[in-house]
């Protein structure tokens, strides 16, 4: 092994590429937001189906959850990008679809466990007050379930933001892709990757905090268990 090279940090490189980094960060945010939207649209109804009484919807939900989450996200990405290459979908859309399908399964699982943790008495009480089942679900069961699972939901959200980095592989110009480009142009490996890590850390922390605040804020059910 040769002697250690003393690496001289040159953080100025990040400033030089500030426009590219900002654009990349906005792409990461757009990617995460779209992926999250898609994952919620898919995951919440499927999570609700999984708690239903009828067998077929439950089976469909279970098949989706198992199939989507036991296949690596990278393969979800390649499926849309390579497998369906004849559709010529833009790579951003491929990444959003992959993130939605993959993270939707995790959200479905979280929603299911949240709904199942709400005591049945809560539902009965709502019905006893003369509410329709749909109203009970919307006003009583769902808010309590979301409050129960707020931390898990927050961790799925932050996982999604970090996982969006994999879309660099199908050439979406988000943070990780741009760091690779800066690295390629300047050989400033540490600056580029540590720089974008700061972006990820900041975003993940913010999103985790606010997800817990938004959903967990309604945890008036905490003493009901």
């Amino acid at each position: 092994m040769s002697t250690p090279l003393y690496y001289h940090f040159d953080w100025e490189v990040l400033w030089r590429f500030r426009h590219e980094l900002l654009a990349a960060y906005l792409t990461t945010l757009a990617l995460s937001a779209a992926g999250l939207g898609g994952a919620l649209v898919l995951g919440v109804p499927i999570g609700v189906l999984a708690t239903g009484r009828r067998r077929w919807p439950r089976a469909i939900a279970a098949v989706y959850v198992e199939a989507a989450r036991d296949v690596p996200l990278l393969i979800h990405m390649y499926f849309w990008y390579l497998g369906l290459s004849m559709l010529r979908l833009p790579s951003f859309l491929c990444a959003v679809l992959a993130l939605s399908m993959y993270c939707g399964a995790f959200i479905a699982e979280v929603v299911r466990s949240g709904l199942q943790s709400v005591p049945v008495g809560q539902y009965d009480a709502g019905v006893a007050l003369g509410m329709k089942p749909a109203r009970v679900f919307r006003l009583i069961t769902l808010p309590q379930a979301m409050a129960f699972v707020a931390p898990s939901l927050a961790s799925v959200f932050s996982q999604l933001i970090k996982d969006s980095s994999l879309s660099s592989v199908i050439s979406v110009a988000e943070l990780t892709f741009t760091a690779g480009a800066i690295e390629g142009a300047t050989f400033r490996t540490f600056e580029a990757y540590i720089g974008i890590t700061a972006f990820y850390l900041m975003t993940v922390t913010l999103v985790t905090r606010s997800a817990i605040a938004v959903f967990g804020g309604r945890a008036y059910s905490a003493d009901l268990t």
């Binding site: 090279l5 970090k162 690295e183 540490f190 990757y193 890590t197």
Partner: peptide, 24 residues
């Protein structure tokens, strides 16, 4: 720190970064 960093970034840092630090 690690839980806030994407896997791909950790991988790149180890792969490309290690050679700078250790010269190997």
């Amino acid at each position: 720190l690690i839980r806030g960093t994407p896997l791909l970034v950790v991988l790149f840092l180890v792969y490309f970064g290690f050679s700078f630090l250790a010269g190997h």
